[in-house]
Design a protein around this nucleic acid. Sequence first.
DNA 1: ATATTTAAAGACCTTTTTATCTTTTTTTAT
DNA 2: ATAAAAAAAGATAAAAAGGTCTTTAAATAT
Lengths: 140, 140
Amino acid sequence: MLSNSLAYAIKALIYISHNSSETERITLKEVSDSTEVPKPYIAKILQDLVRNNVLHSIKGPNGGFYFSEEGLDISLLQVVHILEGPDKYNKCLLSLKDCNASSPCPLHDNIGQVRVELLKRLEQITFRQLMQHKKSVDLF
Amino acid sequence: MLSNSLAYAIKALIYISHNSSETERITLKEVSDSTEVPKPYIAKILQDLVRNNVLHSIKGPNGGFYFSEEGLDISLLQVVHILEGPDKYNKCLLSLKDCNASSPCPLHDNIGQVRVELLKRLEQITFRQLMQHKKSVDLF
DNA sequence: ATATTTAAAGACCTTTTTATCTTTTTTTAT
DNA sequence: ATAAAAAAAGATAAAAAGGTCTTTAAATAT
Ligand code: FES
Ligand code: FES
């Protein structure tokens, strides 16, 4: 239901949310080792998140990534939009041109409802919430 | 949320459900033309469905595909299993080894619920139901 | 200033998904 | 028997997703 890249991103962001601050940055290597996502691959994803101001990064000794205060309030949906584009989860399930209640395809009123619920939840969940989850500390 | 192939399969099966019977078979060409799915691609999918007894097919003049009576009661979930394997929608969203309520990852209790709901609906919906949908006749 | 540490960028490779083409087999009509 | 119609099978190709490697740029400590 969620792509590989998105699952990796969420894991990495949960990890960073716990272990970083503006003064205590976390290195790529540490993120990669802890989350068990290949280093160059998670690097690509984190770069994308930095470009989109979810994370900040500092180069050089003692450099690394950190989650800004604002970043913690970013929703999962915003991360989906950054990594997979705004159309993800926003098209007719049978690829009809229009998807709306006035001319619904046979899936619109049943599977489509699940999609609406998914979008709603992705929009509600922030990293500030996720980092408070009991298991998120010993996820890795 | 649903793969390309699955959406194609569902469209094709809805079309076949309306236009075929054991004596009135429908050709690959007609399915492809009507659903606007590339012929060789939908052929592969239909072959897979025939091998798994969702459809039957007859070669030669007046041959084609048809939906057996039993086939109409097959659920969308069964089609998912045939086309994408039994693991689809059945793994932890963050790829942890076990996914269960006793040791849930941070997504298990929110996004995970959506997945449960999706599975439930995929399991409930049959082609007999879909073919009764008002729009399914002029979908194509 | 220099060397070291670290992320950024971009080129490259592999696998999976999506799509096409060609040949073979089966069935039917003549 | 023969020809035509149609699905089955398999080889191939293109695109996207997933993953790796190398070089460059920036920051810091010495
Ligand atoms: S019309 Fe198909 S999902 Fe809305
Ligand atoms: S433990 Fe991750 S979705 Fe169930």
